[in-house]
Design a binder for these strands. Structure first.
Lengths: 335, 335
DNA sequence: TTGTAGGCGTTATCAG
DNA sequence: CTGATAACGCCTACAA
């Protein structure tokens, strides 16, 4: 394994010169002749500068970390895709870390394994303890996710308001005549369930339904919850799922049970994942700007990082949700 | 930002002692009293050893890189999930890198950004140039993917044989009476198409169909190809898709066009992604052991890496595919 | 049981 | 234009 000294020796110059040539920093300060000799030597030795040594002296790793659970959910997979592309574009590497506990992310920062952490949170909280762990002027934490209060937060973030999305879904259902809607929740009394209850006007009843965890995956859970909803809550004419995966599971269960969607029961999803237009029937859902939040905030930070010197402050950003009406919703059956 | 010297000072010991305590290497060689003082000092200073410095001296990064395109495909997302879990289990970090060109991966190794590269390839080739770039005794490249020839390859890999899977699908269709099947390919004359042609007996005709790239996503492509197949190739009673995503798109198109599946046309997918059981109708498909290949080979390597000293050689591994019959296939209509 | 010193591979600063 | 030299933060012989 060759290091910078080997290259220097092979080219008959000093390590400093090799460094200068390879970093292109002081290109104008190196004669074309030596430049070429160095490049040749590096090439033929298959030399690549050690990331560790470079990080040690530079204090940066050119790495961004994406912190998230649920990678299997297409919605998050999409965000990952976007992050990957942008990292690529700016010459960064992408580290994928579970967002289980704060301390893990803090170590990441303290060990300086990443310059930027994009943290997918639900919801984005007002004070992010991880952000408090930034250690260098060049480290940044961006929180991305639904927000539960008003901007500005004490920590910058890229966010949207699920209240808005849930409200749009509820009002859509109310508008076409539904009066009794089951909200398919993962766990009881969560945020979105609250929003749904808030959004329901006097003429609409929201019935929260959830199910003990333990089901294998979200699709199975969606199916199970949908069944329970229709069984336990007579009079329900529409299901509002907390995410598309649940909704897909629900569609499947209804189909199996011979319940026609949307003729007998309407179904609404959440997030507008890539499968939504291809489900059967195509899913009415709410588009959530996760991917765009990641893309915009990440790009902004990386640009600042590459231009500016000193501390980089991400700008907060709030985008809108959007109801996407497809074929899984219609007027309730006229009894 | 505190370093090991700060901790040493705070604890009234030397940096060496701090290192010993924190690495637990020579635990028995440090008195309990100093041990506690060091731990306290480290704690209260919020000290974490610099990954860069550590990597520089140790020659390892505790990082595994997963190289792949197609993160958005649920099939690969699953592999990612598995890799994530195992990395976690062994205390490794996970780097996600695009598998575009070999040189990129080679730099990764040469810059020592990762100790292990798990490379998702299609197909796994006999000589992997990336593997040739390993630089330290502790670096490993594992290729995971379908294999096009017989084991052993010159490079170790974890693989399966798509011939087997495609054959099972073709024979399933033949067995229930289909005589003319369209193979929905991404591009013309690819590997799986070849296998399908090979697997077709004398009484079965395989018609390859593909479409110019440019469609937005695989679902849309699947839909478009399915339409083209049925339009251009009269007499086709079944569609064999090169992956589940195509198959899902196909199901959607057929449904839209009022063609009943499986009554009028059968559809077979490939990979058995998590949506397959939940499509409408549930998709007959071929399970492909990608996730298990990743899990097994990665675990084997990480175990070796943590036990053994010196070069680590991954063991090659070939697993089987399995036909999963669901509701999207049936006898062709009796004309 | 603990401390000292040298080196890992780079880059930046300062002379020449 | 180029070359010494000093960090960066840590680990590990070796010495005490």
């Amino acid at each position: 394994m060759s290091n910078i000294r080997d290259v220097a020796e092979a080219a008959g110059v000093s390590p400093a010169t090799v460094s200068r040539v390879l970093n292109g920093k002081a290109t104008s300060l190196v004669s074309e002749a030596t430049r070429e000799r160095v490049l040749d030597a590096a090439q033929s030795l298959g030399y690549h500068p050690s990331a560790a040594a470079r990080a040690l002296v530079a204090g940066r790793t050119d790495t961004i970390a994406l912190a998230t659970t649920n990678i299997h959910d297409p919605h998050y997979a999409r965000a990952l895709d976007v992050a990957q592309a942008i990292a690529e574009e700016f010459g960064y590497h992408l580290l994928l870390v579970p967002d289980a506990d704060d301390t893990r992310l803090q170590s990441l920062l303290r060990e300086r394994r990443a310059d930027v952490i994009v943290r997918l949170r639900y919801p984005v909280d007002s004070a992010d303890e991880v952000a408090a762990a930034v250690v260098s002027e060049e480290q940044v934490v961006i929180a991305v996710g639904p927000i539960d209060r008003q901007l500005p937060l004490s920590t910058p973030c890229a966010c949207w308001d699920d209240r808005e999305g849930i409200r749009a879904a509820v009002e859509h259902l109310a508008g076409i005549g539904h009066r009794r809607v089951a909200f398919l929740a993962g766990r009881p009394a969560q945020r979105k369930e609250r929003y749904a209850l808030e959004a329901a006007g006097a003429d609409m009843t929201i019935v929260p339904v959830c199910i003990e965890p333990g089901s294998p995956d979200d699709l199975a859970r969606g199916a199970a919850i949908a069944r329970r909803a229709l069984q336990r809550e007579p009079g329900v004419t529409a299901l509002l799922a907390q995410n598309d995966t649940f909704a897909l599971g629900a569609l499947h269960a209804l189909h199996e049970d011979g319940i026609a969607v949307p003729e007998q029961v309407s179904v609404v999803g959440y997030n507008d994942t890539f499968i939504a237009p291809y489900s059967c029937p195509p899913l009415t859902t709410v588009r959530t700007p996760l991917a765009e939040c990641v893309s915009r905030s990440l790009r902004q930070v990386l640009e600042a990082l590459s231009t500016q010197h000193g501390a980089v402050h991400p700008q907060s950003l709030q985008l809108h949700t959007e109801l996407v009406v497809r074929a899984s919703t219609a007027c309730p059956p006229t009894t």
